[in-house]
Amino acid sequence: MSGFFDIPSDLQHSWWGLIGLHLREALLPVLAGLLLALPLGQLCVRVRWLYAPVLWVTTVLYAIPSLAFFVVLIDYTGQTELTVMIPLTVYSLVVLVPAIVDAVRSVPQETLAAATAMGFGPVRRYLQVQLPIAVPAIIAGLRVATVSSISLVSVGTLIGNQGALGNLLHDATIYNRPELAWNAVITMAVLAMLADAVLVLVRVLLTPWMPSGAGRRTTPRTAGTRPVPAEPALKDAAR
């Protein structure tokens, strides 16, 4: 009774159950982070001076150890998944806010001027022009945030087995079953890679307008006189 996939009963989940739980605890915070970062990023683009302080705050929040977060939150949200997901949401902002600000700023000035000149209002311009063009760089940020979130979920172990696959690490020590630790580490790594691959696929599907292929990261313009502002973002996305 010590198989690789035999999960101790105290975790109350099968291996597949733990995977589902892990993905929920990792991905919901990224989604929440994205929903927060989009308006925050847009605000930082519009009100330039806000960007530096916002970035500073997200960085400081990122520096707070999760254990400290838990100690504070546990009074309000108890030993629940929510207590794990709130810090993860906050952590994702440190990646997503700059990604979105850079993405939106990378939309070429001429494109924006052309949109304004054609009679786009600000909301329509944001939704129909800026956001779609920012998609590659936003997804590049999402990839980093997702992968780090998947690995961070395991700290939930500290507050009463809310760490999903991370709980296996704890069980590996108390039951002296090292294979459970291997299971946790390998499964999380595979999940991270799969999630990353899915995001790349989403990006490819959403951006048929992007030059594809390794040798063509720069937009082939015969004019060639203008550095393409979106280039750093594209490189990021292609990484």
Partner: peptide, 30 residues
């Protein structure tokens, strides 16, 4: 203002095309 702008064609340096739209949809914008 947007009604005014839609009644005036505007051509800009480097074309300022919408890179995420096909040529035909770019032209059909206004």
């Amino acid at each position: 203002v947007n009604i005014l702008r839609r009644s005036m064609g505007y051509v800009i340096q480097n074309a300022g095309l919408f890179q995420h739209r096909t040529i035909i949809d770019n032209i059909a914008t206004v």
